[in-house]
Design a protein around this nucleic acid. Structure first.
Lengths: 240, 240
DNA sequence: CAGTGGTCTAGACCACCCT
DNA sequence: GGGTGGTCTAGACCACTGG
């Protein structure tokens, strides 16, 4: 029977109870927890409710359930980190980012761009170059490349000032499926250094973002070079 | 009634069906999808089964369900990226990482370490310094700091060569709850540059990892400085 | 084979939102 | 009040695992 004595749902209380046991060390990684049927009897709830509770623990990385065998304590996935990267408001901080458009034009794809976007060399590409600044001065210089689709109007203001995924979405009108980001360090070229107001050769953070459509074609490429002293990326493990 | 005609579970087929509709553009972001009761009738399944399907879509970021209102199409969370960071095998690549231990000793916490680990200035701290190399040569130099707990033996080999979360786990025997990683660029100091066999001032990637216990106390701090030309971090959005 | 998780039902009642 | 999602039942049957 259902016990509405507490304010929280039964499956939630069950999950909390098991979680506490795990954190107290009553279960060790690799241990099998009692079967769903046992837990159902133990907590006086139906099997479905037990499953709901276990699903919660599994989602948070405390256990792994294996069909036909049981549910097992796992070590927390502490080396899987989540990074939020929004290129305009760099990192969701309430930084006041100013954007300066350097140029926006249509160019022929060179071999580098062609490879990244999976188009022919010489294909028409929209190229956008911008400088992002905070209150302290310039932070990053950023180049974006999008395949040019005829018939799609170029709304200069929007395309230049919106965040990259938004730009891609607006421009191509396809379903965005995923993106990838590569992070590395580089020395700033003289041109980049001048734009960022530091000596040439200063350390910079290089962020390359590629956006893919649901049919796995690259539909946008962004290359962002940041002043090393003004940008820190922060990632945390499974923030629930 | 249950239709076992297909090989896949009903909730899964329902989710796939809705996902296809979303990707085909039949639903647009912000749109409300039919209510669970409607879907139950439509697909000839029970409400619980519909819920299970919707939970799947919600987990993958296609919809968001709101109690009392309905389920709504969301834009895919393309700017939430997942980064796997395992410090020993840098990035899960099958790189063959060699580890050289420079020193391992117990020091008094200076103000920087004390702040990071939340201990008193002067508290005993285990400090480990290492160089990580690949086949091409040195990649990173890395310093780790752990609060010293009396009675816990220092197993030099393990503590020096294991990945950081493992070291923390083995050393402290507490439940690890979460970790954070800060990524930035810096110029290499003369000492770091020498260890990494590059000129002083070369660009480097600075990775600072802090590991927290379940009671939210910092129990490990790792500071890793990488040659910019030999390390690229890769993150992808919801890798399913 | 027995034991495990995985799916599913056909309802019921609750909590919430909006009008 | 009428619609929505959220929780829950008390079973049933299926699929998988391992002895």
């Amino acid at each position: 029977m259902q016990e509405r004595s507490a304010f929280l749902p039964a499956y939630y209380r069950l999950a909390e109870d098991l979680r506490a046991k795990i954190e107290r060390g009553e279960f060790k990684p690799g241990d099998m927890i009692p079967s769903t049927a046992q837990l159902a009897r133990q907590y006086g709830v139906s099997p479905m409710t037990v499953r709901q509770g276990l699903a919660l623990l599994a989602k948070d990385g405390y256990i792994k359930t294996v069909q036909g065998k049981g549910s097992f304590i796992t070590v927390p996935p502490i080396d899987t980190l989540v990074l939020r990267f929004v290129d305009n408001s760099l990192l969701g901080e309430d930084r006041n980012i100013k954007v300066k458009l350097l140029n926006l034009n249509i160019v022929a794809a060179d071999s580098g761009v062609a490879e990244k976007l999976g188009v022919e060399i010489g294909a028409k590409i929209i190229k956008i170059k911008r400088v992002l600044s905070g209150d302290e001065g310039p932070i990053a210089v950023d180049s974006r490349f999008l395949p040019y689709l005829k018939g799609v109007p170029l709304l200069e203001k929007e395309i230049a000032y919106a965040a990259f995924p938004e730009v891609v979405a607006r421009h191509t009108d396809v379903f965005l499926a995923k993106s990838s980001l590569e992070i590395s360090a580089c020395a700033l070229s003289p041109e980049e250094a001048e734009l960022l107001e530091v000596p040439a050769g200063s350390p910079g953070l290089l962020l390359e973002q590629i956006i893919y459509s649901n049919n796995n074609r690259a539909i946008g490429w962004s290359k962002m070079i940041c002043r090393g002293d003004r940008l820190v990326l922060r990632a945390t493990s499974h923030p629930r």
